[in-house]
Design a protein around this nucleic acid. Sequence first.
DNA 1: ACCTGAACACCGTTCAAGT
DNA 2: ACCTGAACACCGTTCAAGT
Lengths: 201, 201
Amino acid sequence: MSVPPTRSTLAGRPPRSDAQRNRDRIIDVALLELTADPDAALRAIAKKAGVGQGTLYRHFPHREALLWAVYHREVQRLTDAAAELLRRLPPLPALREWMRRLGAFAVANANLGLAMHRSIAPTDDPDRPRYALCATAVSALLAANQQAGTVRPDLTRDDLLLALAGIWQINDPEPAAREARAERLINIVIAGIATEGQHAV
Amino acid sequence: MSVPPTRSTLAGRPPRSDAQRNRDRIIDVALLELTADPDAALRAIAKKAGVGQGTLYRHFPHREALLWAVYHREVQRLTDAAAELLRRLPPLPALREWMRRLGAFAVANANLGLAMHRSIAPTDDPDRPRYALCATAVSALLAANQQAGTVRPDLTRDDLLLALAGIWQINDPEPAAREARAERLINIVIAGIATEGQHAV
DNA sequence: ACCTGAACACCGTTCAAGT
DNA sequence: ACCTGAACACCGTTCAAGT
């Protein structure tokens, strides 16, 4: 279920090169279309990618699968940033800065996020890309902070993700308002999870 | 847009009694069907309510409108509870208890909430029932706490609603796990918004 | 192996015809 | 005024036919 979707999931040899090319092109187009309209039709995505509908379904057995693939590719950078931030900054500022980037990402990909919310069945599968990838980043940041004693030791990764959930639905029209709103949420979360005396970082 | 949907929106006299009856029955059935399946078809709802599809559309011009009506009716109790809690308890405990009820409500109506999330267009219309009704309750609780000095004075209603956003997506299988999860989120939020020295209420 | 596009089942929404 | 249900446009998904 959580196989990296860069190569064919079928056992054994790599996919035929034309298949790989089709797959990549479908994801490229899907990102564009879904960013413009969270309800973009798969028909239109297949058409713009220059493939038949059957081909799209061969690579992604249902709408959800395509969304995962798109999201996975996009969110990867966000995850990578966590490790880099931990190298450059003390744990709590690193966490704060990562949250800021998460906010910027959520806003930039609001329609994509909405598309996922709309088509995803109500299960709690932790293998889903958005959740799973953010989870990796959050785990690292959280562990560093707990080791440094800046965040309460009993806080779990899931608690933190839940507290941050609102960040995905920030959608004020002006960028400045969005940033301000994200910042206010981040302040609440930091204050809510930090150990005494660490609030004003 | 935010007219109380109990009576006909058309100016002047009240609706014909059969129309009123149809309207109520549609909402009754919709609540049942949407709770069971967030993607329940309007066709099926009309059928089970014993009306034609056109009748459903006469009362609710699109899917979203029906969802608003259902949600509005359900969430009303939650709003009413806020005033009552403020009468019985000190401000901060009242806020905490209301958040607990919000959590219970969100879990009980998870599918309905999901249905709304799915069909609602990406605008930030504050007249939408879930948001608007909770906003009323939150405003009252927040004002009481700020007057009492238990919550930071610069916190806005929207900040608090955003911090609580995660509560709508709690969906662990066992009730005990859900309650525990909600409690943990509430603790983070309370710690994040309370003034110094009020954390352990 | 992989691709294509017509075909199927279904859904939201509209509207001509009724009372 | 209000109701009915066939009809329209559209979508996700499947599949017979091709290379």
